[in-house]
Design a protein around this nucleic acid. Sequence first.
DNA 1: ATTATCTATAGATCTATAGATAATGC
DNA 2: ATTATCTATAGATCTATAGATAATGC
Lengths: 219, 219
Amino acid sequence: MSTTTATGDRWERTGAQARSHRTQDAFLDAAEELFGRDGVAHTSVTDVADRADRSIGSLYHHFTNKETLVAAVVDRILASLESTADRAIDPARWAGADITQIVRSYAASSLELGGQRPGSKRIIVEVSLTDDVTRERYRRFREHLEDGLTALLIDRSDEIGHPDPPLAARFVIDQLTAMLTARLDGDTIPTQLAERADRAFVDEAVSSVGSYLRLADDA
Amino acid sequence: MSTTTATGDRWERTGAQARSHRTQDAFLDAAEELFGRDGVAHTSVTDVADRADRSIGSLYHHFTNKETLVAAVVDRILASLESTADRAIDPARWAGADITQIVRSYAASSLELGGQRPGSKRIIVEVSLTDDVTRERYRRFREHLEDGLTALLIDRSDEIGHPDPPLAARFVIDQLTAMLTARLDGDTIPTQLAERADRAFVDEAVSSVGSYLRLADDA
DNA sequence: ATTATCTATAGATCTATAGATAATGC
DNA sequence: ATTATCTATAGATCTATAGATAATGC
């Protein structure tokens, strides 16, 4: 029947032929694009098949139902985010770097990654509305990323002039994440944050972090 | 036929009987609740009629189609937000208040209002995805609110130690708005911002604003 | 021989309407 | 007399399947 199986409502690729692999990717690419642009609920499986230049019958050969297709798209997005986050918070990567460098790099690369795939987050947020598994996995991803970044800052407590370094580190990462989210959401929160050029925005964000933490070279 | 007319795709109440008024409110209340909880796309007009304890025929007597019902709900939400914002940024209201008081009040009342109706924003964001008029109106609302708040701060430039008060005021309002948004989105961005108690969060946000602006009583 | 794809369509769900019945208020 | 409401259902749209045809790779 189908070459996909739902393991605990999740998705697993089990295609045999090389053609199968290409077709599944074509469906996933088409689905991700349309889901991100028009929303999952407003995109029909027929739309996805048309966009992928394949038939609706072929789509249902590869995916049990629309839910499975959505889960596959979500899984691909989250897996990519998770691996990026793992690399970003690896202490070894930041050996020798100071807080300003870490913060600047986090802000700049978030904007770059988020700007490349603006629909990804929209998909995750929409699916999370009704799917507990996705909501929880997304929450864990962000928690993992923020915890890792906070730890990088706490490891550099000697640079922090704020009287409570652990609390200040945590707050500053939350604050920065909120600003990056606002800026990346664009249509959702399009204020001055969205209008200012990326570089100027990062500069001001880094400066704000520095003054709140009372970094050594700031005093 | 119908007692609603679509004026430029917008909605106008034209009910005659007292009963009509009550029924329209019942439909709007039911729709707002379900739209906010399950999403507009996942809520059928039948769901709305059932929730309002009225028939589908009655719903279509009052609203031309689902789109008109959605527009009516959106209009009610935005009108409420707009009037709240107008009151919040009235300079007369803040005569004698300093920056810290303004910022604290903005943060506290945003959290209070947003917490009362968590679904409102979700509805606006979902509708904005496909409706240009709503997206633009929501953007204008936020721009108006942020411009007003920024002006209140700039009027108090003598309190600001930052070398560029207009830029600093603008940045700080953006930053604060981003944090409030993150906190209110709860499920969307549930990190430490969401876990900390409202009062502690407001305290830390106000303190952060103070240190970035280099407020007089902070130096 | 097995796997992938296509066309055609069944089945489910949702929006919207028609026409009959009930309530309102002059 | 006018307005509001209800029941029943038509019409549109979407998901999913059946069965025939084409391509793959041992």
